[in-house]
């Protein structure tokens, strides 16, 4: 008999691991965002390209530097920062000054993610944190929306290249977003235009169809929970439907509410951030209903035309509590677990 000299490793079971790694999940989210990104560039031209590029680069550089500073291995390679950067870029108005985009990117990663301990520990969606901070700092710039100029592929809006700390000068009269139009001037936009994205708005929020496409892809790859976007849609549709029944002249209908503003992008890609959303099915549904209600309340009664961002951030804040409150009923036990 041959003497057998092999070193065997001893590890705990299970000895096999299933399909997805964090990298793969994040990479798939990037894939799902590609059509939206492509449309953004088509719709808003060079301005969008520069906004998105700056957003992603600033997030990546911040993450890399912070990892270096804190002595960790750089986590730039795991695609999660690219997701944050892209999402953040897609929520910005095209034509926003480059330096503002960069500042927001640094804040998104630095304050939204790293401050809390990095991937897995951020209670809020970092992209939204970045955007919210920008909105607070530059309220005017963040609500100035360019339309789709014909020379968008050759010309940059002058506001894009504004020097840091100077006030950007806008050369074209900006178009109002459909939501602002409805809220302040009672102008309605055609639902088909909303669906196809031929309206003004943030870089990536205009084309509802492509956003849904990305969402369907993620649900099919079993990466995203369909429960969150679907419950948000249902809640918003139901509430706005009811309101419209009460006073059709005053309140916009469900279709308009669903397809305008950042609702699609927010519900499909932002609210579903794994880290900041609940884990159980029932928890996801509650979370969706809550965000849906908040969106309607802010849009209808709040001072701003857009409320998705704040609704999601609030939802993020309650998410851990929902998780704590809703635990699955353990097999063989009578009651749901009580949180002590």
């Amino acid at each position: 008999m041959v003497r057998w000299t092999k070193t065997l490793e001893i590890r705990s079971s299970p000895h096999i691991a299933g399909g997805k790694s964090v990298n793969a999940i994040m990479f798939n989210v990037v894939l799902a965002l590609l059509p939206v990104t492509a449309f953004a560039v088509y719709a808003f031209g060079l301005a969008a390209l520069i906004t998105l590029g700056t957003a992603v680069t600033s997030c990546l550089v911040t993450e890399h530097l912070l990892c270096r500073l804190t002595g960790r291995n750089s986590s730039v390679g795991d695609w999660s920062v690219v997701v944050t950067g892209l999402l953040y870029g897609l929520t910005l108005p095209p034509g926003l000054a480059v330096w503002m985009v960069a500042v927001g990117g640094v804040m998104a990663v630095g304050l939204g993610k790293f401050l809390f301990g990095g991937l897995g520990y951020n209670p809020f969606n970092p992209a939204l944190v970045g955007r919210a901070l920008l909105q607070a700092a530059f309220p005017v710039a963040m609500t100035t929306w360019p339309t789709m100029p014909v020379d968008r592929f050759t010309q940059l809006p002058s506001s894009t290249l504004a020097w840091p700390f100077t006030k950007p000068v806008y050369d074209s009269i900006s178009g109002a977003t459909p939501l602002a139009g409805w809220k302040f001037d009672r102008v309605m936009t055609e639902p088909t235009d909303l669906l196809l994205g031929y309206v003004s708005g943030s870089t990536g929020e205009t084309c509802a169809l492509l956003i849904l496409l990305g969402g369907v892809y993620l649900v099919m790859r079993k990466i995203m929970s369909w429960r969150i976007p679907v419950t948000i849609f249902l809640t918003v549709a139901l509430c706005s439907g009811l309101l419209q029944l009460i006073d059709p002249a005053k309140y916009a209908g469900p279709l308009f509410m669903l397809f305008s503003g950042g609702l699609m992008l927010g519900a499909v890609f932002m609210a579903t951030d794994m880290v900041a959303s609940p884990m159980t099915h029932l928890g996801c549904e509650l979370y969706g209903v809550l965000i849906g209600l908040l969106v309607v309340v802010i849009r209808v009664w709040g001072g701003m035309p857009e409320g998705v961002m704040y609704a999601i951030l609030l939802g993020n804040a309650v998410s851990p509590h929902i998780d704590n409150w809703i635990q699955p009923r353990v097999y063989g036990t009578k009651k749901r677990r009580q949180t002590p």
Binding site: V22, I25, G118, G120, Y121, M274, V275, M279
Partner: peptide, 23 residues
Amino acid sequence: HPQYPCIRCGYCVDACPIFLNPS
């Protein structure tokens, strides 16, 4: 692959046949 922190994806909660919360 390196071990990451829990990203709270809930996959484990969906997989546990005993309905525990492994995360």
